[in-house]
Amino acid sequence: VLDEPAGRRRTAPSRRSAALAHALQDAELLVVEGESAKALRARLHEVAAFAAQVSYGQVADLAATLQRELRGLAHRAAVVVTSPEDAERRLTHLADLLESGETAYTAADGRSFLGRASGPARIGFLFPGQGSGHGTGGGALRRRFPEAAEVFDRAALPTTGDMVATDVAQPRIATGSAAGLRVLDALRLEASVAVGHSLGELSALHWSGALDEDTLLEAARVRGKAMAEHSSSGTMASLSVKPERAEQLIEGLSVVVAGYNGPEQTVVAGPVDEIEEVQRRAERSEIPCT
């Protein structure tokens, strides 16, 4: 766990990024608050009813208006929406949760949130490890922000081949983290603490100022290359299941549970041919496996 670095240099968003930020978005963030759960519920119903009457283009105006009205009240709700209908549905759902007595909620897709602030807010960054994503193009982040495009251009990642191979995945993921951090810096979104998951520890060290960006990308490249060259006899797979279910999938094989990434994500390791058998078993059971 790393504390906030001292003296991080902040750069202003480019003119293009600023213009895009004021343009019509694919999605908007609607934030609502109240002095109590009851007041928040009433406000959610009010905003939901209004959202149902606006045009697609006016959703951005609604988001801006709600943001300007924030007073730092304790009971809070937020939704990421793509249309007036989506806004009405998500806001109403949160109001219904409050009606049933729920005071804390995070949707599985991360687009609806309900909670109560109990003190000063702190932002923490969690940098991902190997197993995250599978593309090297940079996606919308690269297309939208020149700050991110610059990082990807300099990294010169491969565009063909096995994108999840260790020697490709590690520099790819570190590049994405560095690009994302550039964008967060430009948008003035600052954290007070950061942690990294495995490979992500390097990105957290970069955030803290211990590694510059070039060193981060080179360290990830060398790390990935070394691990690929010295682990040819075995491999890993990530199963989206609890450890108990993972144990059932590897039964009878020379495969072991190698990591507990989360309540519903278990990593197994073993010989390549036996991990392939685990993947086949997972596929037959309709269990996500990467």
Rank of each mutant, 00 (worst) to 15 (best):
K38G: 14
L184D: 03
R116L: 08
T136D: 05
A246W: 00
L91K: 03
F145S: 09
S177M: 15
H75N: 09
T175L: 05
P288T: 11
S100I: 13
V164K: 13
G161M: 02
A246E: 01
Q67Y: 09
R154A: 14
A39S: 12
A191I: 08
A186L: 07
T235M: 09
E213I: 11
L157A: 04
S118Q: 15
A148N: 06
E85W: 10
Q279V: 14
A148K: 07
G137A: 10
M163H: 12
G115L: 00
R144P: 11
A21W: 13
V80R: 14
C289H: 06
R154F: 10
T235F: 03
V183Y: 05
L202S: 00
S285W: 07
A204C: 03
S83G: 06
V267K: 08
E190L: 11
G270R: 00
G209P: 03
F113S: 08
L205V: 05
A169I: 04
L187Q: 09
E147F: 05
T82K: 10
P146E: 14
D273R: 15
D86G: 07
F145D: 09
L30I: 12
E244C: 03
R10D: 10
A191P: 04
E244H: 05
V222G: 03
S240E: 14
A178Y: 04
V278A: 00
G34T: 04
A77K: 00
G180S: 15
L94E: 01
L20W: 11
P288D: 04
A117N: 05
G234H: 04
